[in-house]
Design a protein around this nucleic acid. Structure first.
Length: 160
DNA sequence: GCCAACGTTGGC
DNA sequence: GCCAACGTTGGC
C-alpha cells in the first residue's frame, strides 16, 4: 500500500465537499500534469491512503485523510468543452488524462500547517516542502506518513 | 496582488 | 533539439 498527498483549493473543492459526497466518494479530476498522470496510471492502487491538503488558502496544510478506491481511468472532463479543464488534444479513443476515485476517511484532529511541516527536520525530504515544487499529487513515504500522524497528536499550545 | 518557480508550447 | 515566451501554481 502506498501513501500520497493530494492538493486542492478549499474554495474550489475542500475536504468538507468530499465528506459531503454520497459515500464520501468522488473522482479526483482535472489533473493536467504528466507526472501526476503517470503516478495515477502506474502507482495508484485501491487501498492506498492519501492526505488531503488545502492549498492557496490562508493556512495551507494537511487537513484530513482519504482512501484511493479505484484504479486510474479516463478523465472525461477533458472531453467536454464546457469544462474548465477541457483539453481538445485528449481523444476519447486515446485519453490523455486520467483520474482516480477517492473516499473520505476522516478529518485530522487539527490542521497541520505547511509552516509546521517545513520546520520539521524529519520531513525535509518531502516534495511538499522543497523549493519550487508544483506537483499537486505527490508520494509520501511510510515514515513521513507515520510522523505526520504523530504530529497530529502533538500539543501545540504555548504552555501545554 | 505579487512574483518565483516550473511545465508546456512552438518557432527555428 | 534548443530555448524564449507564456501560462499556471501556490506561498506569502
Amino acid at each position: 500500500m502506498a501513501y500520497w498527498l493530494m492538493k486542492s483549493e478549499p474554495d474550489v473543492y475542500g475536504i468538507d465537499h468530499l465528506a459531503a459526497e454520497p459515500d464520501g466518494t468522488e473522482h479526483w479530476d482535472g489533473i493536467r500534469n504528466y507526472q501526476v498522470r503517470n503516478m495515477f496510471r502506474d502507482q495508484f492502487q485501491p487501498g492506498d491512503q492519501a492526505f488531503f491538503y488545502h492549498s492557496n488558502t490562508k493556512v495551507p496544510g494537511i487537513v484530513g485523510i482519504m482512501e484511493v478506491v479505484s484504479e486510474a481511468y479516463p478523465d472525461h472532463t477533458a472531453f467536454d468543452p464546457d469544462e474548465k479543464y477541457y483539453d481538445p488534444k485528449s481523444d476519447p479513443e486515446k485519453p490523455r488524462w486520467l483520474m482516480v476515485d477517492v473516499r473520505y476517511v476522516r478529518h485530522l484532529d487539527r490542521i497541520i500547517p505547511l509552516s509546521e511541516l517545513k520546520a520539521d527536520p524529519a520531513l525535509s525530504e518531502m516534495r511538499l516542502v522543497q523549493r519550487g515544487n508544483r506537483l499537486s499529487v505527490m508520494p509520501v513515504s511510510e515514515s513521513e506518513w507515520d510522523h505526520i500522524l504523530e504530529m497530529e497528536q502533538r500539543d501545540t499550545s504555548d504552555n501545554g
